[in-house]
Structures are given as structure tokens and as C-alpha cells.
Amino acid sequence: MTLLSTPHENTAILHKAVQGRSLWEDARRRLFRNKAAVTSMFVLGFMTFMAIFGPLFWPHDYETIYNDRVMIAPTLEHLHIFGTDPQGRDLFVRLLFGLRMSLSVGLVATGVSLLIGVIWGATAGYIGGQVDQIMMRIVDVLYALPFIFFVIILMVVFGRNLILIFVAIGAVEWLTMARIVRGQTISLRKREFVEAAEAAGVRRSSIVLRHIVPNVLGPVVVYVTLTIPAVILTESFLSFLGLGVQEPMTSLGNLISIGAREMEIAPWLLIFPAVTMMITLFCFNFIGDGLRDAIDPRDR
């Protein structure tokens, strides 16, 4: 049943001979017609590539301090194409590391939120009744928390631990995911294929994992692409407040906060990180919007 295929299986479907166009195939076509989304994918792919492999080929290291070249403007001399920071470190390579950090925070924290949110929402929606009531009531309660304060307390309490940043932000972002998945699940629960699986005696956990989860993927994929930029923003808030990633490691938020402090004498310290961050956020948002229009084209 091609309807149930995940995005990864799409490429496989493409190569098969004559076949009806599945929902995902349709969505893929619509997505690739969206110029903004396609451009964003290329830009984002390039930036990810640079973030991962760029530092390997760059002559400078992210923690090497050049005492004789502190805060110099972008210059081709010594290949400081984005200048150096107040400690005399090469900004370009630090930017690559910052981008790498922000992207991985975005991906991992979104992964955490995805895992919790999908399982929570699918379970609540599928079991229904009292369990659903209780589970969603918990979500409501958590919604009321001033989360940023708890994340701040967490960072302060446990020190600026990288894994903790991932988990803390992920644990904040799963609520909306759970709500979306639950809504979808409730509408799926009464569908024939779920009833058939029930009649065939499939265990409840397998029904949730095999039949419910793959079918709620559409809205979830859209929400994931919109969660990643939100997570990157949250991380940069924390870094900006001095609670995020620790020196000499860096993230985009961290670089921006240094740049904001020095902007009057060294504007490049703010401009380059800020532009990088904006491009990243633009890309994710364009892709997310493109996916939404592709999967659920009601709005156009």
C-alpha cells in the first residue's frame, strides 16, 4: 500500500514502472514546483556541508588565538575572510562551528520532541477515554508552564551541559506535537484498516506503531521542519543570556551576543553570524511552508 510509504520510500516508488500517483508522490511534485522551498533545500544543504566539512579544509582552528590579530576587519591577509573576534580567533571557522552546533541542537532537540510527542499523542488518541483525558490534561498543565524559566533554571542548576540543552529544549517542544498527533489519531482510529488490524488480533502497541504513526506523518513532518528553527531560536536565546553552549565551543546565538556587544567598533562580528542565522531560519521556514502547502494544499 503506497499510501503508507514514508518520505524515504518515495524514491523507491519513483523507479517502479507504471503506477498510480500516491499521496506522497503528489506532495513531492507540488513541493518541487515550489521554487522557494527547493532553493532553500539547496542553500541549507550547502550550509550543512560547509558546517560539517568546512573546518577540515580551513587553515585556522576555532580555538587558536592570534594575539597579534585581535578584532581585525575581514581581510584576505591570513585568510581571515570574516575577520577575527575579540580574542583574536578566526570568525569564519567559528561561524562554521557555531552553525554546526545550532544545526545539531535543532535536529537533536527536535528529534527528542518528535519521539515524545508522537508516542504520547498517538497513545492518547488511540486508547481514548479516561487515559486520553488524563494524558491531554497533563499536556494542558505543561502548556501553562513558563517554560523558558524552567529551561533557565535547568541550565543554571546542572551547568551548561550540552546534552542537557538538547533534552531540555526537546522536552519543551513536544507538547504541540502531541496535540497534533492526537487529533490525527482520533480521526484515524475508526478507519477500516485500523479496524481490520484490530479484527486480525494485532496487538495495540503494534497498531499504534505500524498503522497510526505512519499515517500521521504528513502533519508531523511539516511541524518538524517548523520546530527546528524554533529550537535553534530557543538555543540562541539561551546562549545570548550566557546560559547556552560554553566557550571555546560556540553557537550562532553565542556569536550574535558577542557581536551585539562589539557592534559599534566591529560590526562584522554581528553581521556575519546574524545573516547566517537568518538564512538558516529562512530556509527551514520556506521548506516547512512548502511542505505544508504540498501535503495539505487547502490554503493556496
Binding site: 546565538g253 550574535i256 557581536g259 557592534m263 531560519l281
Partner: peptide, 18 residues
């Protein structure tokens, strides 16, 4: 609106004040 969503306040703030 997309610009508004993608340009975080920690960038807008310093630039505006500059």
C-alpha cells in the same frame, strides 16, 4: 511576515539600537 519570523529579536534589538 517571513522576515519578521526569521529575524530573531536578539538580532533586531542590537541593530535597532545601533
Amino acid at each position: 511576515a517571513m522576515v519578521g519570523i526569521c529575524v530573531p529579536s536578539l538580532v533586531v534589538g542590537p541593530i535597532l539600537s545601533l
